[in-house]
Design a binder for these strands. Structure first.
Lengths: 284, 284
DNA sequence: CGCGAAATTGACAAGGGTCAATACCGGTGG
DNA sequence: CCACCGGTATTGACCCTTGTCAATTTCGCG
């Protein structure tokens, strides 16, 4: 299952309950999933005649045309949506652990997912961050090799392994999409290798803030545009684990950026960037 | 072209001539390529009737059954081999530069290829090492994003972009192979993120030596088995650029490993590892 | 308001970087 | 065969950035 083992690492002292786990995930106001489509019954029969509508489940989905789903025709989306389920997880929830078998994949709809690796003695490194509409999960592999956690509160669209693999086998365009996402992740990983290996603490912190400013969902709008104000989806410990620093050093560098007027910090987590180019200039 | 621009970075003060560049690469003794197959003429006509022999070019190739080529049928290998060319490059030769358009791919047959990225101010980071039978080059991309250099003397099997992309389009198994290689590279990049972010200088050096011991071609034999004696395919500067250290620190850590009896260093480049597990134990 | 967790700040230590001197290797030419 | 030379690697002394440990403040939330 794409779900918590009771493994507990440092940054995971928080709660790790999630709203998954029972068959009939209740539909509250904030989660606008309409998952009657996956319960069989009336809605199901309508889907079986392969019309070209957008599935009810996907209609309100902000990433419907992006990421993996963008590669699918209406019919394919129909097929897929019969197996997907929109789920929410709280910050800190572990979605899958290192070496756990892979049983499902997911698309990030909202929030940030972090991928981490741990050394035997407990030293931890965040090796990837996924924003909407990224695909999460390692296809063609038996185990996942990284631990997957919700960095912030997240909403995911979960796909069982078999359903996705079948769809991929039938749809070269989808496979291609996933290949491209993998290549993008590879580029990003290599980009961070440069940051980890060759940048100073100050540049590292600036780089991460810049990454977040350019990737955090500007409410369903165009991607890649820097937002000038956002809530940090990561704790200082997460930031430290991502940048290969200690929380103290992160804190000091944040203060420096603040006193230099590059950012304002409101209540620890909320960041205002008056001039994104000044921030970018500090990325090395 | 998969070929040197006159761009010169730090570690590239060496010669950067290569034996490519003219149409009819002469066949010397060391390069056991038999590239009559790609010159048309007699051999060519025999290939066109799609029999199931192994192409002459590939017969002596040690990685014939490994890497990308392992996914091909005899016929496909025939088709491919009509476009490939085995080439040699000296250590330090630049094969492709960051942001250069991609015009060909290659398989590593012998030696080590390094992928690097550079910051504006010249700080350099090696972001990947490729050993035989790895595939080199970023498929589905316009530019390569990394600079590709021969770390040691290398022998490559070069494939023009168009030829490969056509073959990939027709052969899902091949596409799948490339996807798996990409995923492996992603895993490796993430593994090195941990090394760069969280390991000490001593652990970093040990980790790199261990990587090389387990990846350097044990003369065509089974992969993944650690070899106890090898020539370092990287200079101290390359090692430093890979590990995010300075050459001085690399040097000091190597001497520590030597005085601790974990390795012997013969003439700077030749390394003997009496007990690979002792080395592994120092990787953190 | 008050508690526990998270973040900041300070004093100090240490790992690794910087700069400079020296040693070593590999190739060339006498 | 040996001497020399340029590039590469090693070693040492010193310093700076970042880590460590501890005290304090701020935040989030009941």
């Amino acid at each position: 299952m794409f779900l918590s083992q009771p493994v507990v690492f440092r940054a995971l002292t928080e709660r790790s309950i999630d709203e998954e786990g029972d068959a009939g995930l209740p539909c509250n106001a904030e989660c606008r999933c309409s998952n009657e489509t996956e319960r069989g019954g009336l809605a199901m029969t309508r889907l079986d005649i392969h019309n070209s509508q957008t599935p009810a489940l996907c209609q309100s989905c902000e990433i419907r045309h992006k990421g993996m789903c963008g590669a699918l025709s209406s019919d394919e989306l129909m097929t897929l949506s019969r197996h997907t389920r929109q789920v929410r997880h709280e910050a800190g929830a572990q979605l899958s652990s290192e070496d756990a078998p892979i049983t499902s994949y997911a698309n990030v709809m909202r929030g940030v997912v972090k991928l981490t690796k741990v050394l035997e003695d407990g030293r931890q490194q965040v090796v990837g961050l996924q924003f909407a509409p990224d695909f999460v999960g390692r296809i063609y592999g038996q185990t996942s090799d990284v631990s997957v956690e919700a960095a912030s509160n997240v909403e995911l669209c979960r796909v069982p392994r078999m359903a996705l693999e079948q769809l991929v086998a039938e749809n070269p365009k989808l496979e291609r999409r996933l290949m491209e996402q993998t290549l993008r992740e590879l580029d990003e990983a290599r980009g961070w290798m440069v940051t980890l290996g060759r940048k100073t603490a100050a540049e590292k912190v600036a780089s991460l803030l810049y990454l977040i400013a350019t990737h955090i969902d500007p409410l369903g709008d165009k991607e890649g545009v820097a937002v000038t104000e956002f809530d940090l989806p990561l704790s200082r410990a997460d930031i430290a684990d991502f940048l290969g620093l200690t929380i103290e050093t992160v804190s000091r560098q944040m203060t420096k950026l603040r006193t230099a007027g590059v950012i304002s910090i409101i209540a620890n987590r909320h960041i205002v960037v008056p001039d994104i180019l000044r921030l970018k200039a500090r990325c090395g």
